[in-house]
Design a protein around this nucleic acid. Structure first.
Length: 403
RNA sequence: GGGCAGAUACUCAAGUGGCCAACGAGGGCAGACUGUAAAUCUGCUGGUGUACACCUUCGGAGGUUCGAAUCCUCCUCUGCCCA
């Protein structure tokens, strides 16, 4: 095992907050001298079924801890997800059932395993202890924290001032998350910067329960492919861990230039020297932003699908968007023998439009082509004696065949 | 418990009896320009019909009216003030 000082160098990489650092050094030294791995906690709320490379920023940091010999405690917040973390939200989240959150939780573990070393990972569900608590236990927990302390949290204050509703149960979220730390006896808890408050509550509560308080470590929140909002499934600006290499590549290519070095740093965990070289190249014009982006896109695809898949994704991208030809693989779509073959109905049937009006608009505005030939007449009939490639917009392709 | 204000399409937000499928902004989609970038410009953005048209929609349920998102009644939800 490497010395505490050496470990700290790795641990600090790409980190925003590491508090309190002296405590962590102490924990690391103890860990080295007793050969006991630290327990590194991450809680994931399975409120949505997919995780993306924004989550992977934190997961990658966990992986570094594992590579240093420590143990990751992955808490699937099947219970807390029912409350819904109010962090950063302006509205109360809709409640999910325990069944729904459990269902999502299963896929989380699978997805997290794409980054983590599962032999050094403990997976636990927080319903294991939270669902067992009596009302008496809950009151005991809530008595350890004050309303003023809770209201310190920025988004609560904002909502309160803005006259927006805050339900009492939302106050319980930080406390339940903190109690998780007690339950798993964590040495350090990780999270995005938006989790700083919740992580700190964990320290207080652990102390109140007579435990040594955890250290906290926060990672930056990665912006989504739109370059503005944080990456999230619901905003549609995410690169999913289960996305194909092709999608990862393509989505990365659509990020704004300003995000290139950020993605190299946080999505690829590249070396500092390399990042500096890239930033210098971009600012003095010796590196074309597009080439830099291609490189980052390849690396992201390769990180999850292997180098070969990354190169294939690049080749495919060149073919479709630079040479404007048809993708390698186009899904087939069978058109029934008696189904109408006018362009509008085909678009709706293929799922490219949700209504005929929308399909008509797509055609009229020149967004539709068949076998590369643009169609602008909404009444056009497509001859399906041979398979035809239907394209809508830049990205959507389908091969029409007669059933 | 009492008083006041509010609920409009994905979001914000106009509209206070017919001119409203509902101003505007954001978002989204498409096109031009490009590097599937950004910025910019253009068009579209409830459903069905090629169009005049019709159907469903303005928290919910009733009612008044030739006609309601707009008026009345009750209900649900939210915020503020007082207790």
């Amino acid at each position: 095992m490497r010395s505490a000082k050496e470990q700290l160098v790795t641990i600090r990489q790409n980190v925003v907050d590491l508090l309190p650092e002296e405590d962590l050094i102490r924990k690391l030294e103890r860990s080295v001298s007793t050969s006991t791995p630290l327990r590194v906690k991450l809680g994931l709320d399975p409120s949505r079924p997919d995780i993306h490379i924004g989550h992977a920023v934190v997961l990658s940091k966990l992986r570094q801890f594992q590579d240093l010999g420590h143990t990751v405690v992955l808490i699937i917040g099947d219970f807390t997800a029912m409350i819904g973390d109010p962090t950063g939200k302006s509205k109360t989240r809709p409640a999910l059932t325990l069944d729904e959150t459990r269902e999502n939780g299963k896929t989380y573990v699978d997805q997290a395993s794409r980054v983590l070393d599962m032999t050094r990972t403990e997976v636990v569900y927080n319903s294991q202890w939270l669902d067992q608590m009596s009302f008496k236990d809950v009151i005991a927990l809530t008595s350890k924290y004050t309303v003023a302390q809770i209201l310190e949290r920025d988004d609560f204050t904002k909502r309160y001032r803005g006259g927006e509703p805050i339900s009492v149960h939302e106050f319980l979220y930080p406390l339940s998350q903190a109690y998780d730390s007690v339950a798993v006896r964590s040495d350090i808890e990780l999270g995005g910067t938006d989790q700083k408050f919740n992580l700190l509550v964990g320290r207080e509560i652990m102390r109140a329960y007579g435990h040594e308080p955890q250290c906290i470590l926060t990672m930056p929140i990665l912006e989504g492919t739109d370059g503005v909002e944080k990456m999230s499934k619901s905003l549609g600006n995410y690169i999913g861990l289960t996305d194909s290499a092709k999608d990862m590549f393509g989505k990365t290519m659509s990020i704004p230039d300003t995000l290139i070095s950020k993605y190299l740093r946080y999505a690829c965990f590249a070396d500092e020297a390399e990042i500096i070289t890239l930033e210098k190249g971009l600012s003095d014009g010796s590196v074309h932003p597009r080439n830099a982006k291609v490189d980052v896109a390849k690396r992201i695809a390769a990180r999850y699908h292997g180098v070969e898949a990354g190169n294939d994704a690049f080749a495919e991208f060149e073919r479709v968007f630079v040479k404007k030809s048809v993708p390698d693989e186009v899904p087939d779509f069978a058109v029934g023998a008696d189904d109408p073959t006018d362009i509008v109905n085909l678009l709706v049937a293929a799922g490219f439009s949700t209504s005929k009006g929308e399909a008509r608009r797509l055609v009229t505005q020149g967004g539709v082509s068949v076998d590369g030939e643009k169609i602008t007449d909404p009444a056009a009939i497509v001859d399906l004696h041979n398979p035809r490639i239907l394209r809508a917009g830049k990205l959507r392709f389908i091969r029409l065949i007669r059933a």
